[in-house]
Every structure is written in C-alpha cells, then in structure tokens.
Simulated assay, not measured.
Amino acid sequence: MEKQDQLLMKKQNKNLVLEIIKNQSPISRMEIAKVTGMSPTSITRIVNELHLQGFVRETELVTSGVGRKAVLLDVCGDVLYTVGVEIDKLIIKIGIVNYVGEIVAWKGIPRDVSESYYETLEKVNVNVKELISKNCILNKRIIGIGVGIPGSIDYKNGVVKVSDQLKWKNVNIAKDLKQLTAFDVMIDNELKMKIVAENSKGIAKDSQNAVLVGIGSGIGSAIILNGEIYRGDSNNAGEIGHTVIDPTGNVCNCGKIGCLATYISEGALIDDSRKVKEIDTIDDVFDSYRNGESWAINIMDRTSTYIALAISNILCLYNPEVIILSGNTIEKLPEIKEPIKQKCELYIWEPLKERIKIAFSQLGDRGVVLGAAIQAQNLMLDLE
C-alpha cells in the first residue's frame, strides 16, 4: 500500500510539473520549485523524465538579471495529438489538435439529413484517417478522439441517448467509432465541449464560473461552475431549449408544448417565415431581415427578446462572471448582437448588471472540435 501511495504521489507531482510548464512557459526549474514547494533535485529529476518522454524541451531563452542565467523550459506541441469531431445536422467537422491546443489540420464534410447512423460514422472514419495521413502524423502519436454531438449524451458510457437534430436514439457511438478507427473515443454534448474550449483558449479562460449559450439548429447552454463542467444528475444541465415559455404554444419535437426551441431555433424561424413567404433556408430569412422586410424584422425582434429572456433567467440561476453567446444564428447574423444587448438591458435583474460580462464567442465554427479534442486529451493522457 505504501509503495502504491508513493507511485501515485510521484505521478501527481509529474503531472503538476508538466501542467505548470505548459501553462507558464517559458519557465525555469527554480521557478517551478518555488511554485510547487518541491526540492530543486526533485524538479530536475521530473523534468529529465519529461524531456526523455518528449514532453519538455529547453528553449533558447534564458532568464536575465544578476548572477547565473537559468535555462527556461517549454513544452513540445508535437509530442501527441487528439482528434476533435463535431457531428451536426448538415456538417461534420474534424480537427487534429496538438498538445498545446493548436488546431494543426482541419476539414469540413457535408452531411445529408438522410444519412444513416452507420453512414455518418463511416464518413467520420474515412476522413479522420485521410486527415492524419495527409498531415504525416504517426498513429502512435494520436491518443484518442473526442466527439461533440447535439442532444442528451451519456458521456460515461459513450451513448447518445437522444439527438433531435441527428434523429439518433440510444446509439453507442464511442464503441462503434472505436471499432472503425481503432482509436479510443469519448463523446459529450457539443456545447459542453465548446465551453471546454472557451475555458481553455477563449473568452472564459480566466473564469471559474461561466455560461455558454448556443443558438442555431437548436438552443442550449453549457455551464462551468467552480472551474468544472456542471452536468446535473444526467448530464442535461443547461438544456434551456426545452424550458417551457408558453404552455399553449408550439409543439416541440420532444412532445411538449411551448418549448423555447420552438420559437428561436433555425427550424422554427423557417417555419414561421414560410407562413409569409416562400423560404428555403435560414439564410433566406436573414437576407429578408437585412433587406428590411417587416415580417422578418418582427420574427428576429421576437427572437432577440426570447434570447435576452433566456440570458436573464440563466444569470438569476447561476450568477456567472461571463455569459458567452455562440452558434450559427450569431455567426450568420451578427446584426442581431446589438438588439440582444439592448433587450438584455431591459430584462436582466439590476443587481446582476454591474458585474456580468456578456460576450460573443471568438472561436467561430471550430469551438466544438477544439473543445472535444482538449477534453479527449484531459481524459486520455496518462503519464507513466
């Protein structure tokens, strides 16, 4: 038991040192010793091990000042990679991400709504392997795949319980995709993966409490509380799209009446628009709004109102430092940002206004892929 405790402590110390170098590089051995409280001898031993494993390198930089100059340490981005995948209704996005969280390869592949579950998985398999081969990355350097999917996800068992957008129910994508690719696979809700990216590389990087709202083919949110993803009992915390705003309203795919998603999702906006004009896509709705067509202005005014109300309710429940708006609607119609802000001024409870930061994601269409890859690394990297 004592030997196991010692091995565990050594592993924890090694992880701690690597994390410090990764987050604070370039940094000297002496600075690491001060931060950790470990002896310089222990730090030297751990750094030597990490160097032999390919994680750490000495930089050409040295500290300046009086006395002996210390060599600084940095991490090697190409020591390992993870693959991030986003599967959405009409597109599959794939990115290869290195150890320091940089997307080094990227591909977007159209997805047909008529595709079967297995056709989609085979498409992911083929394109992941092509992307790895095209970028001359050795398979042994890929430690796993992370997948972000809209819907209710059993992330512990790798199962999509239900995805309205993809029309999938009770499918074990982690197991099935691993059989195809031979890589370990983890899956999670797409917005939870996107907030991982925001918390690691984006607007919420320095926040302990943050909420991300995604508005597009559906609407949902993801929550970081005390630096961790808040999942609730069944990983469905943040599913605001199925909060009821009008019990006599529209019928939702979930079977309930008056869900928020039935008013501001892309499908809902298209359906409402078709009552007035022949509309094919959400882009047609947005073009009509830009052209000043009164019906489109009314629909998007209602949309911005419901978004602001959703934000207000989230703020009252979780009181985060920052709330980030993202998704296809925000990206394709940036003109809606200002109306949302104005409506937020109207509806947010006064005591919350002073400190809350409302921001718009800067990660574009790569947030889910990046977050899924980072989460895969967090879960799958096991230092010997």
Rank of each mutant, 00 (worst) to 15 (best):
N253I: 03
L212T: 13
T44D: 15
E2G: 02
I299Q: 01
I46V: 15
C252R: 04
H51I: 04
H51L: 02
K353M: 11
G292M: 02
T181G: 01
T63W: 05
N226E: 15
S39C: 10
I219R: 01
M380G: 09
D78K: 03
V322D: 01
L346G: 01
K256W: 03
A182P: 08
E86A: 12
S273K: 12
G249Q: 01
P351G: 01
M186W: 11
E86C: 03
Q24A: 12
N48Y: 06
I324T: 13
G292E: 04
V71W: 08
Q342G: 00
K277S: 13
I240Y: 01
W106G: 06
R290N: 14
Q53T: 03
Q53V: 01
K123G: 09
S39T: 15
V322K: 12
N127R: 04
I43W: 04
K332M: 11
D365P: 10
I137D: 10
G151W: 13
E266S: 15
N253G: 14
T36Q: 02
E354V: 14
V83T: 05
T120E: 02
Q6H: 07
I223Q: 06
I257P: 05
I224A: 04
V47W: 05
A33E: 09
R290M: 13
L346M: 06
N319V: 01
Q165G: 11
L18I: 10
S217V: 06
I224D: 04
G84E: 08
R29V: 12
G258M: 11
A310C: 05
W295L: 06
L383A: 13
E86H: 10
D5F: 09
L16E: 06
D188P: 00
Q362P: 03
N139H: 15
V71D: 09
N157G: 03
D301K: 07
N328P: 01
G367Y: 09
M38W: 11
Y289W: 13
S116V: 08
L383M: 12
S25G: 11
A308Q: 00
N48A: 14
S200R: 15
E130D: 14
G216F: 07
D74T: 11
A237E: 09
E335I: 11
N209F: 02
L346Y: 00
I282S: 14
G227V: 02
G146Q: 15
A222P: 02
G220M: 11
L352W: 00
N378T: 07
K69C: 15
L225Q: 12
I245W: 05
S133V: 02
G158M: 01
R45P: 10
I143P: 10
Y155C: 03
K34D: 14
L363Y: 02
L352E: 00
L7T: 10
I27L: 08
K275Q: 08
N328H: 13
I299M: 07
Q208A: 07
K11G: 01
Q4V: 15
C136G: 05
N15F: 07
G95L: 06
L72N: 06
E58N: 13
E293F: 07
L309P: 00
L191G: 05
S116L: 11
L90E: 09
K34R: 15
T59V: 12
V97G: 00
G267D: 03
L121P: 08
T303G: 03
L180Q: 07
E31C: 02
N157Y: 10
A237N: 09
N235P: 00
